[in-house]
């Protein structure tokens, strides 16, 4: 679904990532680790073409990125759910409308019952009418997750999805992602939380990747 082959990305004459390759297949579960500033967020942005690789080949759903038009990219993003670390929303719209935003931009009808069920699934049923600035960090993460999955995407990319929440909430978010994975979605989570990775490995078969020295490596058995 998402394929990166010998991809490099850099700016100002130096590479942040060099020759990285990854193939995200249906039902796969990957963690991406590495120290802060190692390029985890950059790697995720390359995956949904928020950044364009300076070298190598990126394919989204069989289409080479370099041949995709802006509209092609927009359509591809409808098949990728993204949870950002900073969880940006349209602050003037209530949570329910923010979560349903992908449906609206795709011109798909919104089923109120489905939306209600999704909000209940992420524990935000009571906060449907709240505005994003009124949400706590954990609630924002869950709202972002709900928005990421409302289109039933093929891939979910999550960047530090538990960065702003306590351990209990982290486990709850993880269980949501695991549940999605069991539904056949490909999951890629960028995190430096090793405890989260260990907790996940008890539930799913996950591959752990590490960015070190601008390269993508398979992490060892220490995890």
């Amino acid at each position: 679904m998402i394929e990166l082959k010998d991809v490099s990305y850099g700016y100002g004459g130096s590479d942040l990532l060099s020759g990285v390759s990854l193939s995200l297949q249906p039902g796969s579960f990957h963690f991406l680790t590495g120290p802060s500033g190692s390029g985890k967020t950059t790697f995720l942005r390359l995956c949904y073409l928020d950044l364009m690789a300076t070298a190598g080949r990126v394919e989204l759903f069989g289409q080479p990125a370099r041949k995709m038009t802006r509209d092609d990219i927009a359509h591809a993003r409808r098949r990728i759910g993204v949870v950002h670390q900073d969880c940006q929303f349209l602050d003037h719209l209530p949570v329910s409308q923010n979560v349903a935003l992908p449906l609206e931009v795709a011109g798909r009808p919104e089923n109120p019952a489905d939306l209600e069920e999704l909000l209940a699934w992420v524990g935000l049923a009571e906060r449907a009418d709240a505005l994003p600035p009124e949400l706590s960090g954990g609630e924002r993460q869950r709202a972002a997750l709900a928005r990421a999955v409302i289109m039933s995407p093929d891939v979910v990319l999550a960047d530090e999805p538990t960065g702003n929440v306590d351990w209990e909430m982290s486990l709850r978010l993880l269980s949501l992602l695991v549940e999605l994975n069991r539904m056949g979605k490909a999951i890629l989570i960028a995190t430096h939380d090793l405890n989260l990775i260990r907790a996940a490995k008890k539930q799913v078969s996950a591959r752990v990747l590490r960015i070190r020295d601008r390269q993508l490596q398979l992490a060892g058995a220490d995890l």
């Binding site: 509209d71 359509h75 993003r77 409808r78 931009v105």
Partner: peptide, 16 residues
């Protein structure tokens, strides 16, 4: 700018 970023993130076309 933030509105545009969010809309693009969820797959909005430029025309939308």
């Amino acid at each position: 700018g933030q509105v545009i970023r969010v809309l693009r993130l969820v797959g909005a076309r430029d025309s939308y």
